[in-house]
């Protein structure tokens, strides 16, 4: 009896240990977004990750380097609503609770600013004529594949 008990609860503990052991390193993959030439300065390209998350990708400079582009999550860090870019005010605006973000994604006013929550920024990479975005494996998995 004792042996069986120890074996059973012991393996339960082992399961817990394995669970706490970090999962695979969060690998980042570079996913094609668009051609560099197709992005105009001052305009935001609405884009969706394969998993369906909305990302707003904009050209902020005229150069060809990674620094000339910015990719921000369109999901408001406050409650997960979708922000939209208002070019006339040069800001991102969240209609749910009037959250306002600067074009760089910094929270300017509204609930996100109070909580100090900026828009999540994605890594970008320019490779020749192409613009790539750095996504985690999870953001790459399509919505349909999870089911």
């Amino acid at each position: 009896m004792g042996g069986a008990l120890v074996a059973a609860y012991g393996s339960a503990a082992a399961v817990a240990g394995r669970y706490l052991f970090p999962a695979r390193p969060a690998g980042k993959r570079w996913i094609y977004v668009a051609q560099v030439a197709s992005l105009q300065r001052g305009h935001a390209l609405p884009w969706r990750t394969p998993s369906g998350e909305r990302v707003s990708i904009a050209r902020v400079g005229d150069g060809q380097s990674t620094d000339d582009f910015i990719a921000l999550s369109s999901t408001c860090p406050h409650l997960g609503c979708q922000v939209r870019y208002e070019s006339q005010h040069a800001r991102f605006f969240c209609p749910c609770h009037n959250g306002v973000f600067s074009p760089e994604g910094k929270a300017v006013s509204g609930p996100p600013a109070e909580a100090g929550q900026d828009l999540v920024r994605y890594a970008l990479r320019v490779d020749g004529p192409l613009l790539y975005i750095g996504l985690s494996e999870r953001q790459i998995a399509s919505a349909g594949q999870e089911a």
């Binding site: 996913i31 884009w47 969706r48 990750t49 394969p50 494996e137 790459i140 399509s142 919505a143 349909g144």
Partner: peptide
């Protein structure tokens, strides 16, 4: 194989 690929949102309908 499917788990590693990135089906871009723009092509999801095509793929389906």
């Amino acid at each position: 194989a499917g788990a590693h690929i990135a089906i871009p949102d723009s092509s999801r309908q095509c793929v389906d």
